[in-house]
């Protein structure tokens, strides 16, 4: 077949062979490409599909592999999720918050941290950043002056998460409530256990998400995280200063 026939009867036969699958790859592609712009052809193909569809009932049903839905779900997800999109997606986000809601663990971590902080530095807001695997890994807190401090929680509570894999860096982000894109607060120095940002690029407010993503050397080349968000937490008001 060098071109689609003009004769309606012939075109109908081409449509039929397309539907039953006997056209070779080249001709099938020719039909496929023509479908969008050729209403007559589209009509014929649809008619044959409808007429022959009952043949599908002859095919024995068979259960697909159990992991297939998970693969499809990944395939239909945006390639690069913004934290906003992640936040609206319960499957990922719930896991994180279930981790965060590991009440006892998080509280224990907070208490352990508070014990280390001098009273005059009692924070206004704080959060514990947890990993996708629900591990408590970082503590973020905002001091009276609006500075943000980040500390790795080592020991048995947190995995050795304050170091990125070789060739990658950790980048800190803030996403205020209602914002559609996070703002970078800078890179987390390799191997650091603490860092302080005295004047964060965005003013910390309660409800703000604090995230750490994995990025190429030098950090995300764009205004958003390009790598996975490894840790996340939501700032909330700390209790009255002790």
């Amino acid at each position: 077949m060098s071109a689609l026939p003009d004769d309606p009867d012939e075109l109908s036969m081409v449509a039929a062979e397309y539907v039953i699958g006997t056209l070779d790859a080249r001709d099938a592609l020719r039909v496929e490409r023509a479908l969008a712009g050729n209403a007559a052809l589209r009509d014929l193909v649809q008619r044959w599909e409808r007429h022959l569809a009952p043949l599908n009932t002859l095919v024995p049903q068979e259960a697909p592999p159990p992991d297939l839905w998970a693969r499809i779900e990944r395939a239909v997800s945006p390639a690069r999720e913004t934290p906003r999109a992640a936040a609206s997606k319960p499957s990922v986000f719930l896991r994180l918050w279930q981790g965060w809601a590991l009440g006892a663990t998080a509280v224990a971590a907070t208490m352990a941290w508070l014990a280390l902080v001098p009273p005059q530095a009692a924070p206004r807001m704080m959060t514990v950043l947890v990993s996708d695997a629900s591990q408590v890994a970082w503590m973020a807190e905002v001091d009276r002056g609006g500075g943000l401090r980040l500390a790795a929680l080592g020991g048995p509570l947190g995995a050795p998460n304050n170091t990125a894999p070789e060739g990658r860096v950790l980048q800190l982000w803030a996403l205020p409530p209602g914002a559609t894109a996070p703002t970078s607060l800078g890179l987390v120095p390799r191997g650091s256990e603490q860092m302080t940002i005295s004047v964060p690029a965005v003013t910390p407010v309660p409800g703000m998400l604090i995230e750490i993503s994995l990025e190429p050397p030098g950090g995300s080349p764009g205004p958003r995280p390009t790598g996975p968000v490894l840790f996340i937490g939501r700032l909330s008001q700390a209790g009255p200063p002790v």
């Binding site: 049903q61 297939l68 693969r71 239909v76």
Partner: peptide
């Protein structure tokens, strides 16, 4: 629909791995 549709792909491809790839592509 996945059991029915996987059956359709299997009748043509007769290979579970290939049929699973096709079903994924189909749902996409």
């Amino acid at each position: 629909q996945s059991t029915r549709l996987f059956g359709i792909a299997m009748a043509i491809l007769r290979d579970r791995t290939a049929a699973a790839d096709v079903l994924q592509e189909g749902f996409l």
